[in-house]
């Protein structure tokens, strides 16, 4: 499906998945923080919505309840915050975000809980 390894490495072909461009979490200026009181799957306690998971260009949001963001690789592009239909995701300045957000999201340098993506290995974001 990817062609031969030989050909793949003559070009820059890779599978979609977190980390293909290195640890891009350090690029981030603002981090997305999920408000579980507004997030649809959290409110329903069931698999639902997952628009953030669908739109994340780096596959760093898990398809779980609650959705977990892998800050090791999240570049802070804010597409999830833009797309979230219930405005449950807020972009918080990295300079401010270390004070009160540990409860809701893990610090990048402490490694976020492995996302569902990482658990299952790379797979297409269908």
């Amino acid at each position: 499906m990817m062609g031969t390894r030989e050909y793949r490495y003559k070009t820059s072909h890779s599978l979609p998945g977190p980390g293909d461009g290195g640890r891009t979490g350090s690029w981030r200026v603002q981090r997305p923080v999920i408000n579980t009181e507004l997030c649809t799957p959290c409110k329903r306690g069931a698999e639902a919505c997952f628009i953030c998971w669908l739109y994340c260009p780096d596959c760093v949001i898990s398809r779980t309840v609650p959705p977990v963001i892998d800050y090791e690789y999240c570049k802070g592009c804010a597409i999830c915050a833009e797309e979230c239909p219930t405005k449950a995701i807020t972009m918080v300045d990295e300079t401010d975000s270390h004070e009160g957000d540990e409860a809701s999201s893990a610090r990048a340098d402490e490694a976020a809980p492995p996302s569902a993506c990482a658990d299952e290995g790379p797979r297409p974001c269908t």
């Binding site: 070009t11 820059s12 890779s14 599978l15 979609p16 461009g21 974001c125």
Partner: peptide
Amino acid sequence: NPANLNTVTL
């Protein structure tokens, strides 16, 4: 079988 083709390469 999606793939990244010639994205930013370090």
